[in-house]
């Protein structure tokens, strides 16, 4: 019969208003929530989504940050439950590196190709005189 196991209960500690600490926690919560994908939305973060699940996930982010976890630890918790899918910005490890490298390679390749074509098109034709 271990009902009501939540909270320390008992001693009533006086609550002192700490607006600066609260706003700092809110800012840190928003920053972490903005990096986590909402599982029931299309391409939205849990910070942007008004869904009930997103709100509940934001509450967990807030609680974990308040308990002293770092933003990385909070993100790692969600990744351990939902997989890396939950991270809007994938970690730069393993196969994920391809996601970061391919666009750069494509842009460089495209620039090289365009410059080669431009040089070819602007080269004076053999038959041209003056």
């Amino acid at each position: 019969m271990a009902a009501g196991a939540q909270g320390s209960g008992g001693v009533a500690s006086p609550r002192v208003a700490q607006p600066s600490a609260d706003s700092d926690l809110e800012a840190r919560t928003s920053a972490v929530a903005a990096t986590l994908r909402c599982p029931v939305c299309q391409g939205e973060s849990i910070q942007d989504s008004p869904s009930e699940l997103a709100q509940q996930m934001r509450a967990i982010v807030r609680d974990r940050l308040k308990a002293g976890e770092s933003p990385e630890e909070v993100k790692a918790y969600f990744a351990s439950r939902y997989g890396e899918w939950i991270l809007l910005e994938p970690k730069m490890t393993g196969l994920n590196i391809v996601l970061y490298v391919v666009p750069v390679v494509l842009v460089i390749g495209g620039l090289v190709m365009v410059s080669l074509l431009v040089r070819k098109w602007t080269r004076p034709q053999v038959g041209d005189k003056g």
Binding site: P39, V40, E52, L53, Q56, M57, A59, I60, R81, Y82, G83
Partner: peptide, 13 residues
């Protein structure tokens, strides 16, 4: 309460 266990299980539906 607050779907804590659901989120712990990575639930999305």
């Amino acid at each position: 309460i607050e779907s804590r266990t659901a989120i712990d299980y990575g639930l999305y539906g």
